[in-house]
Amino acid sequence: MSDSFAKQIEVSISLSGNAQMPNYATAQSAGADLCASLSEPVVIQPFARALIPTGVRIALPEGYEAQVRPRSGLAFKHGVSCLNTPGTIDADYRGEIQVLLINLGDKPFTVTNGDRIAQLVIAPCSRARFSQVAHLDETGRGTGGFGSTGL
C-alpha cells in the first residue's frame, strides 16, 4: 500500500473454502475488491437478487467500520449493483461477509467463483450522543427536503 494514505490499520482476516483475500487493484484504490466464493455459478435473472458469499471474515479495530459498495464496472456494463448500499460491517461482527447483488439489467447475469463482485472500504466512524431538545436552531435551508436546492 502506498505511503500517501494518511493512516494504515491492521485488519485480521479469516478465509474459508476457496475465498480470496480482498485486494486493492491500484496503489491509490480506496476500496479493496471482494470476490465471490462459490462452489457453483449463481445466475441472477433480470430484476432478481442473490446473496453471494465471499468466504471472508474480518476483525476491525474499535472505532472503524467496513462498507460494502458496488463495483462501477458491473453496474455500467451489466446493470448489476449491490442492494443495501453501502452495507455496513460493524467492528464487532465476525460472520462471513456476503454481498447482496441485484441485476437491474435486461439479461441474466452469472456470478462465478473468484469474480470481483464488490468493494470493501474501511473507514473510521463516530458515535453520536443524542440529546432531545424542544427546538432546533434555524438555518437558511430550513425544512426544505428533496429537490429543494435545485435540480
Rank of each mutant, 00 (worst) to 15 (best):
H78Q: 07
I44M: 07
R94D: 10
E96Y: 04
G150H: 04
A128V: 15
G17D: 13
G95M: 12
T149R: 03
Q67H: 14
Y64L: 09
R116S: 10
F47D: 15
T139L: 04
T110Y: 03
R116M: 09
F47W: 06
P70E: 00
C35H: 14
D106N: 09
Q132A: 10
P86A: 07
E65R: 12
G150V: 13
F47V: 03
S148C: 12
L74Q: 06
Q132E: 13
E40I: 00
Q28K: 12
V11D: 08
E65W: 06
P108A: 07
A32V: 04
V56S: 00
E10P: 01
F146Q: 03
Q132M: 10
V80A: 02
A75Q: 11
G79C: 10
G144E: 15
L60W: 03
A30Q: 09
D90T: 08
M21V: 08
D3V: 14
I44W: 11
A30S: 13
A134Q: 12
A128Y: 07
R127D: 13
F76W: 04
L100K: 02
G147W: 10
S131I: 14
G145S: 03
G31K: 08
V111Y: 01
Y24I: 06
Q45V: 01
S14K: 12
H78C: 05
L120P: 11
T26D: 10
A91V: 04
V133C: 05
A66M: 07
L120R: 07
F146K: 08
A134F: 04
N113L: 02
R69M: 08
F146C: 00
E10A: 13
S37K: 00
R94W: 04
R57Y: 03
P70S: 08
Q132K: 10
S148Y: 12
I89S: 01
T88S: 05
R71M: 05
R57I: 00
A6T: 11
S126P: 01
T54F: 05
R71L: 09
S81G: 03
N23I: 14
P86T: 06
A36H: 04
T149N: 09
N84E: 07
I9D: 12
G87Q: 12
V42N: 00
A66S: 06
F130D: 11
P53A: 05
M1C: 09
K77L: 05
D90G: 05
I9G: 09
K107G: 00
L83Q: 06
G17Y: 08
L83N: 05
G142M: 10
Q67A: 07
G87H: 11
A6L: 15
E40N: 06
G147P: 09
A32L: 03
Q67S: 01
R71A: 02
F146E: 02
Q8C: 05
R141H: 10
N113T: 02
R127T: 12
S4I: 15
L51F: 06
S39Y: 02
V56Q: 00
D33W: 12
I58Q: 02
S16Q: 14
C35R: 15
I13P: 13
A118F: 09
F47L: 10
L51M: 13
D115P: 01
F109R: 05
F76M: 12
V80M: 01
Q20R: 15
Y24E: 03
